[in-house]
Every structure is written in structure tokens, then in C-alpha cells.
Amino acid sequence: MVWPIVILCMLLAGTFYMRMKERADKDRQEPDTGSAILDFGRAFPGEAIRAIHATADEKAYFVRLHDGKAGFMASHGNHFVCHLIEPGKVNVSNAPSGRGLVVHFADFASLDGAYEFASPAVAAEVSLWLLGSFSPQSEFTAVSAN
């Protein structure tokens, strides 16, 4: 008489576990641009983001910072690995597709890889950020230099 009750309890516990697991999987969301910005802000609170571009699969984000520096974020599950790119510590070349970049981080080799973007224009803009070629000058900087 006890065995049917034990089996019934096990079936109910299994059903409950499966429903809770299904609900947790449904509630789990993929990282997005908003969570990337928040994670970068937590990792580097003194850096202000001016622009951000995601890769085509949204697994990585490249950021342009307020002072001309660049940053990188790679998605790992529900969080991001954030990296502040130092000048001269990155090598960039075109990916064969024309819409991407092959990036080598001299100080963080585990992030090396080929990153595809939505368009060749976005890839070109990100490459300028990474290489430090994009140095905006305002009219105030030009006036104060005279």
C-alpha cells in the first residue's frame, strides 16, 4: 500500500520540477544592448559610452568611449566580459566576408576572433575606433590651441 503513494509522490515531484525548469528557461533572456551598457558601466564606472555597435549575432559589442578610447564586450551566458582596449594593444584586419573584422587583442588573447557586423560600413567604423584613427576634434579644441 505504501509503494503506490511513493510512486505518486515521485511523479508529482518530477512534474513539478519539469514545469519549474520550463518556466525558468522561458524567463531567461539573451543579453542585449541595454544589459551590455549596464555591465560595461559596472566594470568601468569612469568611462562614458558615446557609441556602441553589436556584431551581427549580438554576441559581442564594440564601444566608442568619450575620450576616443574603445572597449569590447563579449557575451558569456547572461553576463558580459568587458575589456578596455589600450592604445597599441589590438591588431585588426578585414574578414573574408567584407562585413567583419579579425581582431587580435595583445593583452587579452582569449577574446581574439572574427566578428561579423550588419554592414561593411559598421565594420569600417569599428575598425577606426579600434585602431585609434578616429580622434574627433571640436571647434573648442581648435580655438584653444591658437
Score class of each variant (00 low, 15 high):
A142Q: 14
A24M: 06
M10A: 15
P45Q: 03
A114F: 00
F117P: 01
N91V: 01
A95M: 03
D67V: 12
E47W: 08
G132F: 01
K89E: 08
N78M: 10
K89G: 05
L130D: 03
H76D: 07
H66P: 03
W3H: 15
E22V: 15
G77W: 04
P4R: 12
G132L: 01
I7L: 13
P31M: 08
G100I: 02
E58Q: 09
V6D: 02
R64I: 05
A95C: 00
S138Q: 03
C82H: 08
M18H: 09
T33N: 00
C9V: 14
E139G: 06
A123F: 03
F108V: 12
F117C: 02
D25K: 15
E22C: 15
H79L: 03
L101F: 02
I52T: 14
F62Q: 01
V143R: 12
D107H: 04
L111Y: 02
F72L: 08
S144Q: 11
V6P: 03
E139V: 13
G41W: 14
A24L: 13
L101T: 00
P96V: 05
F44E: 01
P4G: 08
V81C: 11
G46P: 03
G98H: 00
P136V: 11
T33M: 13
V90K: 00
A95E: 07
Q29L: 05
T141L: 15
L65Q: 04
G88T: 06
G41E: 12
C9M: 10
A24N: 14
F40M: 14
Q137V: 10
V102A: 07
L38A: 11
P4Q: 07
K26P: 08
M1P: 11
A60M: 02
D39Q: 15
S133W: 08
E86G: 01
V63M: 11
A109V: 08
G98I: 01
L128I: 02
V103W: 02
Q29T: 01
N78I: 13
G46M: 10
F140N: 01
T55K: 01
F80V: 09
I52E: 13
P136K: 15
P136N: 01
I37K: 14
P120F: 03
H76M: 07
S127E: 09
A48Y: 06
A36M: 14
H76Q: 14
